[in-house]
């Protein structure tokens, strides 16, 4: 399973790199689709069907909206020649990446193997959660019962996002 996840993750990285550098914006959007749908397969392999359902539907809708946007505006990418500031930005990025990689390698050695072992808090959630919440699906039990405030925050964030879209995108004022 780890080999399959590694291969799919490599594919996602390739897709993301192609999406940045593609000349045609439509193929760039479709390369973003590679990232999204590979993530769905990763979720399924890691036994998270709840996330996989959300990801596959959200990715499809996002792809539809992005394709509509690209077809309405221009398909050509505005090519910018790299200048001095661009080189400085790239160098800073590479430097920061090296630092992060160093600390990542150090910190990853103290972690558990993926999927093995659970935290003390997680054990409290897992043991007898069906009797405590009455829900056969543990994810729903955690999302709406143990972590109710988180879910309320997510719902309010969605409402705020919609308010932002309606406020910023409106061109003519409301009568």
């Amino acid at each position: 399973m780890e080999v399959a996840v590694s291969i799919i993750t490599g594919l996602m990285i390739l897709g993301a790199l192609y999406a940045i550098h593609a000349k045609d914006l439509l193929s760039s959007v479709i390369a973003c689709g590679i990232v999204g749908y590979s993530l769905v397969i990763c979720f399924l392999l890691l036994k998270a069907p709840d996330l996989a359902i959300v990801q596959i539907v959200v990715d499809t809708i996002t792809l539809i909206i992005m394709v509509a946007v690209v077809l309405d505006s221009s398909r050509e990418e505005l090519f910018l020649k790299p200048d001095t500031q661009g080189y400085v930005t790239t160098l800073t990025g590479v430097f920061l990446l090296a630092i992060f990689l160093y600390f990542f390698v150090i910190s990853v050695q103290s972690l558990d193997i993926l999927g093995k072992g659970s935290l003390r808090m997680a054990e409290q959630y897992i043991n007898g959660a069906a009797q405590k919440t009455g829900s056969a699906n543990l994810v729903t039990g955690v999302v709406f019962d143990f972590r109710g405030y988180d879910t309320m925050g997510e719902a309010v964030v969605l409402v705020t996002a919609v308010l932002g879209v309606l406020t910023i995108l409106r061109i003519k004022g409301k009568k």
Partner: peptide, 17 residues
């Protein structure tokens, strides 16, 4: 949502689709 995988977020996005 409380029996099988899925729930409010997944089903809501499917309805929007």
């Amino acid at each position: 949502g409380h029996l099988t995988p899925g729930g409010g977020f997944a089903g809501g996005v499917i309805i929007a689709g």
